[in-house]
Nucleic acid binder design. Structure first.
Lengths: 179, 179
DNA sequence: CGGAACTATTAGAACCTGTGATTATCCTGG
DNA sequence: CCAGGATAATCACAGGTTCTAATAGTTCCG
């Protein structure tokens, strides 16, 4: 598989998995991302394309810049990203209602359909990840992770990605720690 | 900050953080990696350099290829990585005991010292991540994450990174899922 | 002994991302 | 109303990183 556009985590590796929350978080996060990336590839989508499609789907008519801000994708990069998705007929660049400089991105029917398929892939990853957990355990884990996530967004003034969004998917690296 | 060598996660983003274990895992994993990457930068180390140093420290005399296999770094990439670390006097390329083709990488005293500092940075990240959790909760989370990690390594025949090692740190992407 | 496989390295191409400049448009203030 | 400054989308370049292919020197097995 060529330097695909998506995952490129910078090798980090650990000597021997030390019992650290941070280490396990970065390791598992990386693996989960890879998994999803692989399954999305089967559907013909990259991680960031999936992210953009999701965003457009939930909030129609946004400008490229607005979307890029959420996904942490610079304007110039958005051009190519949107170009590709538009060329494939998944999204459309419509005239923006109030700003003639910008485009209003919208999902096409084909885009909606593909996104649904992509979601299936995402669900399968979730099922996979939690396959070893009992419903109770899954609930516990969810709560704890949420708690950790909350704390993070609370302090990191700048870093805190907009509600429910996380930029890096595989832009190429992942951290790790061992205790 | 230029396209630094380490973190380059491909933007992925989520529409609205869905309560998914996979999503939170990839998101938090990415953030943790970034955090560690930033703190290691203060010490003058990149994520993968830290990973290599750790590996060399725990298992002296390994060949570049062996180390690269664990860290998922190709041989040609290892050359530059080792070159740099050696130039900085952190590791040494010694003659391999039984194979004159290969080098036996070893940590220098300076390398050991810097690694100790790097570990401090890693510990601080761990403390930070768990700052919002009670000791009990931290233990629970650790157990659950371990369980998920275990399941993973069990099925992924090929993907399962060698015991306790995870490749991507930020090579640039991370996945996400929402449920 | 001889060919096949392997380690480290180098050279070159491909890829992606960031910066700066460009055009069209919006907006605020005089 | 109409500059001047800021903003949206692009484009053209430069830089950095990683992959592929090819090359010496070695080792291993038949």
């Amino acid at each position: 598989m060529p330097p695909g556009p998506q995952p490129q985590h910078p090798p980090f590796g650990a000597g021997q998995a030390p019992p650290s929350v941070a280490y396990l978080l970065s390791t598992l996060g990386y693996e989960v991302s890879r998994d999803l990336g692989a399954r999305l590839a089967d559907v013909g989508l990259e991680l960031r394309q999936f992210g953009l499609l999701r965003l457009v789907a939930q909030d129609d008519g946004q400008s490229q810049r607005a979307l890029g801000a959420v996904l942490e994708i610079t304007p110039n990069r958005m051009v190519g990203l949107v170009d590709d998705l538009e060329r494939r007929g998944l999204i459309e660049r419509r005239a923006h209602p109030v700003d003639r400089r910008a485009y209003a991105l919208a999902l096409t029917d084909a885009g909606r359909a593909l996104l649904a398929t992509a979601f299936q892939a995402a669900f399968s990853v979730e099922r996979d990840v939690c396959s070893g957990l009992s419903p109770d355990e899954r609930g516990q884990l969810l709560g704890l992770l949420r708690k950790v996530a909350q704390r993070k967004s609370g302090m990191n003034s700048a870093g805190g990605a907009a509600a429910g969004v996380h930029p890096g998917m595989l832009d190429r690296d992942a951290g790790t720690v061992q205790d």
